[in-house]
């Protein structure tokens, strides 16, 4: 009954209307309804209201939590954790760097050695692979494995066929 329809013979009224002078002149029973909206809709247009809502999403007002206050002990603990993490990352970085250096050194040594043992194989190992592409079948690791963990039914491409077609 919140919305009075024109056809209804019963008229609804809120208390706000009592003080107003303009009492509906239509004859018939008057019914008081609790919570009927008496105020006019706010003067802001819906478009403006929308913009205000959108801006309030971006604004910090009423949304920021309390500042985190750490006691001295907590601060020391926090610093210790951060430093330990830094040391851990540094160790990892050093290990990685030294591994890469070793790998480069090994590659260099092997190629120098190959040059002295067999020149033809060395030349073949140095041929530039022009159209080599990174394979699309490579999978990026995910947190959980796919339903089919490994694809076993690989059928090698028939190279003789494709060359004939070309």
């Amino acid at each position: 009954m919140l919305r009075s329809s024109a056809k209804s013979s019963i008229q609804t009224l809120s208390r706000g209307f009592l003080s107003a002078e303009q009492i509906p002149s239509k004859s018939g029973p008057i019914q008081f309804v609790r919570g009927k909206r008496t105020k006019k809709v706010s003067s802001i247009s819906p478009q403006t209201q929308k913009i205000i809502t959108q801006l309030s999403v971006l604004s910090a007002r009423k949304k920021v939590p309390r500042v985190l206050k750490l006691s001295n002990e907590d601060l020391v603990r926090h610093d210790a954790v951060q430093r330990a993490w830094g040391v851990y990352q540094k160790d990892k970085r050093i290990k990685n760097k030294s591994d890469l250096a070793k790998q480069y050194e090994a590659m260099n040594n092997a190629m120098t050695d190959l040059k002295s043992t067999n020149r033809e194989l060395y030349d073949l190992a140095n041929v530039r692979e022009v159209n080599k592409k990174f394979p699309l079948e490579f999978r990026i690791p995910t947190h959980f494995p796919p339903n089919k963990v490994w694809y076993y039914d690989y059928v090698p491409k028939d190279e003789t066929k494709t060359t004939k077609e070309n």
Binding site: Q103, A106, M107, A110, A125, N126, P135, E137
Partner: peptide, 10 residues
């Protein structure tokens, strides 16, 4: 997939 025709180590 072969990474490279260059040898890695000996």
């Amino acid at each position: 997939w072969n990474v490279s025709n260059t040898v890695t180590a000996v």
